[in-house]
Lab assay of single mutants.
Amino acid sequence: MQVTWGNVTVTFSNPEEAKKYAEKVARKLGGQVELHNGQFRIK
């Protein structure tokens, strides 16, 4: 499962870890987490 924002992509084998990481990054950037085609995207 991947977490992407800007031109950065981070890949996780565990979807739960990916979700936690995406939420943490979104909080830092003041963005929203979207699940899109099996990727968490931060907008």
Rank of each mutant, 00 (worst) to 15 (best):
Q39D: 06
T4E: 05
V33A: 05
R41W: 15
F12S: 00
G31Q: 05
F40M: 05
Q32P: 03
V3Y: 01
T4F: 07
T9H: 05
F12Q: 00
L35A: 06
A26V: 05
H36E: 13
M1G: 05
K19R: 15
R41E: 10
G30F: 05
G31N: 02
E16M: 12
V8K: 11
F40A: 02
V33H: 01
K43H: 13
I42M: 01
G30Q: 07
V3A: 01
Q2I: 12
Q32V: 15
V3D: 00
V10D: 01
W5L: 06
G6Q: 06
A26Q: 03
M1Y: 15
E34A: 05
Q2R: 10
F12Y: 03
N14R: 09
F40C: 04
N7T: 11
N14M: 06
I42E: 01
A18V: 01
W5P: 00
V3I: 04
M1V: 15
W5Y: 10
K43P: 06
R27M: 11
V8W: 13
R41G: 04
T11G: 06
G38W: 03
K20W: 10
E23L: 10
G6H: 08
Q39M: 09
E16T: 12
P15L: 12
V33L: 06
M1N: 09
V10A: 06
L29M: 08
I42K: 01
V33D: 00
N7Q: 09
E34W: 07
K28I: 15
V3L: 03
E17I: 11
M1T: 15
R27S: 11
G6N: 09
I42S: 01
E17W: 10
T9I: 11
N37K: 07
G31V: 07
N7R: 10
R41S: 08
K20I: 12
L35E: 09
A26R: 03
R27C: 12
G38A: 03
A18L: 02
N14W: 05
G30P: 02
R41D: 04
E16C: 10
Y21K: 01
L35K: 06
I42P: 03
N37M: 07
N7M: 08
Q2P: 04
G38M: 04
T9E: 04
G6V: 03
H36F: 12
Q32M: 13
L29F: 11
A22W: 02
K43D: 07
M1H: 14
G30A: 05
K24W: 15
G31E: 03
V10N: 03
L35T: 07
T11D: 07
E34H: 07
K24V: 10
